[in-house]
Nucleic acid binder design. Structure first.
Length: 263
DNA sequence: TGATATGTTATCTT
DNA sequence: CAAGATAACATATC
């Protein structure tokens, strides 16, 4: 599922191709998938393609933006054929952008600059932002009694970390995912690890785990799944200590860890 | 057939 | 009131 590295991969590809093109036509094939005053975007030129947390934001000339959230099954594809799950089609000067979304949780919203600002104002720093400091992580961990993994996944506290990278970051830092956040002593290790696994994710173009449908804007799968530290590794030997990787449920989400070296 | 998968938000409970 | 827990969203797959 698209977390920050997957969204960032798509953003970079789109930014390279879309900037300078004009939107000729935008067509919605499902009422939930395209929201806001989308008719206004016709004729507008694309200034930049940016990202905040797991959202992609297409900056248009004038006072208009297209904000995109892929949620769990969204795909943004360049010059693909529309299919069964195609929800929005955007025709550009040279290319065509297809928004597929099997489960219809994702959306594209046309918003003005003021609305966009309001939207971003209440969001915490992304894990890759300079505002995400060691002290900031310490602050949010020590002020919560929830399991540390739930705090990493909390989009009101840190932007961009999803289930895959939260699992791997905790393994990297040797921190047990169920440990109460305020009892985590290896905060510095966790800080370095969460940034490290996210950057690895970006480097390998995101991940397409088993049963997932993530592809980048060119229709290619990610490569980080070959680098998973613990995600989907249950039953296998821990590379670090030889323990057996265990899978449990935490907050309703699949949670993978090595019980012998993640304390 | 029913359990399962994940990101986010709404809603309920403590 | 806030924090935390859980249901809901929609659908395909095993």
């Amino acid at each position: 599922m698209p977390e920050l590295p997957e969204v960032e991969t798509i953003r970079r590809q789109l930014n390279r191709v879309l900037v300078g093109q004009k939107i000729k036509k935008i067509e919605s094939l499902h009422p939930k998938s395209l929201q806001g005053s989308s008719l206004k975007v016709a004729g507008k030129k694309i200034v930049a393609v940016k990202r905040k947390a797991k959202m992609i934001w297409i900056d248009l000339e004038g006072d208009l933006n297209l904000l995109v959230h892929l949620k769990m099954t969204g795909q943004l594809l360049l010059n693909a054929q529309p299919g069964k799950h195609t929800r929005v089609v955007i025709e550009l000067t040279k290319d065509q952008l297809i928004f597929n979304d099997l489960r219809i949780f994702g959306w594209i919203k046309a918003v003005n600059n003021q609305e966009l600002k309001q939207y971003f104002k209440k969001l915490p720093p992304d894990v890759v932002d300079k505002e995400f400091t060691l002290n900031y992580l310490r602050k949010i961990l020590t002020s919560s009694g929830r399991a540390v993994k739930l705090v990493l996944l909390d989009q009101q506290k840190i932007g961009g970390v999803g289930n895959i990278y939260a699992n791997d970051a905790l393994y990297c830092a040797k921190v047990n995912p169920t440990l109460a956040a305020r009892k985590v002593s290896r905060i510095k290790e966790l800080y370095q690890c969460v940034k490290q696994v996210i950057n690895q994710g970006i480097k390998y173009g995101g991940s397409t785990a088993s049963d997932e449908n993530y592809v980048n804007a060119l229709g290619q799968k990610g490569k980080y799944q070959t680098k998973f530290l613990v995600y989907e590794q249950q039953g296998k030997k821990c590379q670090r200590c030889g323990g057996i990787i265990k899978k449990i449920k935490l907050g309703g989400r699949g949670t993978y860890f090595c019980p012998s070296c993640q304390k």
